[in-house]
């Protein structure tokens, strides 16, 4: 006999499943729309709890294309999050590299890191806002503080996990310390490191948004909160959806960079790259 959960997942092409996906999605939307129209006694209450999907789409068109209100705030939030993620990543990776290179540093930094991990770092938000003001920098600082942990842990773990045999080979080839670090440790850690970047970006968004909720002059956090206060829930949903959509695009771009950057994990790219290098070195195969 075989166990039901362990049958291989059938490979059905997207072509076949797509209609069902769309059907389910459409059904959900229709149910939602009908709930809004007929499920509540009070229309205001209905729009408060579940604004109609058609209204949300109209609101999205409005804020993205007609009125273009969202762009200023969207750019502001993305700017804060990306700046924060970059700064946090630089700090996290720097600390991780220092920790792998020096045993003493690693030993003394460990309790601090545990303490940092357990503290909900986002909670520092009000302090940053009180000190750095309502503008860009309080949000960037909070985003960086929240973001630094992912790259730190991933870089550290990646750099510490080195294939012993490869290290032996590097030694027998007489590689310098720098070469071993750069071409072996760093290269093999690259996958984890880039996963850390993605973690950093995701958490930096959280940090930037929280800083904006606490107090800010612009940004998606402010915009969504304003829409909610004006009880225009469809607009609030539209704002939320634009964050989702552009966040999704950003992550897709990061995925693509990953794919190109870590070319040695993909057979096709690896072949192409080595062909290029052979030509450059003047080796004709």
């Amino acid at each position: 006999m075989s166990y039901s959960t362990n049958q291989p997942t059938k490979n059905i092409s997207l072509f076949k499943t797509l209609p069902f996906h769309l059907l389910i999605f459409a059904a959900l939307i229709v149910i939602w729309e009908l709930t809004n129209l007929y499920g509540f006694e009070d229309q205001i209450q209905a729009d408060m709890i579940a604004p109609r999907p058609t209204n949300i789409v109209l609101a999205m068109l409005d804020i993205l294309i007609v009125d273009k209100t969202v762009w200023k705030h969207l750019i502001s939030t993305f700017q804060k999050a990306l700046l924060g993620a970059s700064i946090g990543t630089a700090i996290g990776m720097g600390l991780a590299i220092a920790a792998t290179l020096s045993l003493t540093f690693r030993k003394y930094i460990k309790p601090w890191i545990i303490l940092m991990e357990a503290t909900p770092r986002i909670a520092v938000g009000p302090i940053f806002v009180a000190l750095l003001g309502f503008g860009l920098w309080s949000a960037v600082a909070l985003a960086a503080l929240v973001a630094f942990f992912g790259p730190f842990v991933n870089t550290f773990q990646g750099l510490m996990e080195v294939d012993d045999e490869a290290e032996e080979m590097f030694r027998s080839l007489g590689a310098s310390r720098f070469q071993t670090f750069w071409k072996l440790r760093f290269a093999s850690a690259m996958e984890l490191i880039s996963a850390g970047w993605k973690l950093a970006t995701a958490s930096a968004f959280g940090g930037a948004l929280v800083a904006e909720f606490i107090q800010a002059s612009e940004g998606m956090g402010v915009l969504i909160a304003q829409y909610v206060i004006m009880i225009t829930m469809d607009y609030a949903f539209a704002g939320l959806l634009s964050v989702t959509i552009f966040g999704f695009i950003l992550f897709k771009i990061m995925d693509y960079f990953d794919y190109r950057l870590i070319f040695w994990k993909n057979d096709y790219l690896l072949l192409k790259e080595s062909e290029k290098r052979r030509k450059k070195a003047g080796i004709v195969s």
Binding site: F205, G206, L209, A225, V228, T244
Partner: peptide
């Protein structure tokens, strides 16, 4: 897929809506 899309949205951004609800 819905769960994944859900996860792309920063959950914290929903805070104002949650307070309203």
């Amino acid at each position: 897929p819905y769960a994944v899309v859900f996860n792309v949205t920063p959950g914290i951004a929903v805070l104002p809506l949650i307070i309203a609800w």
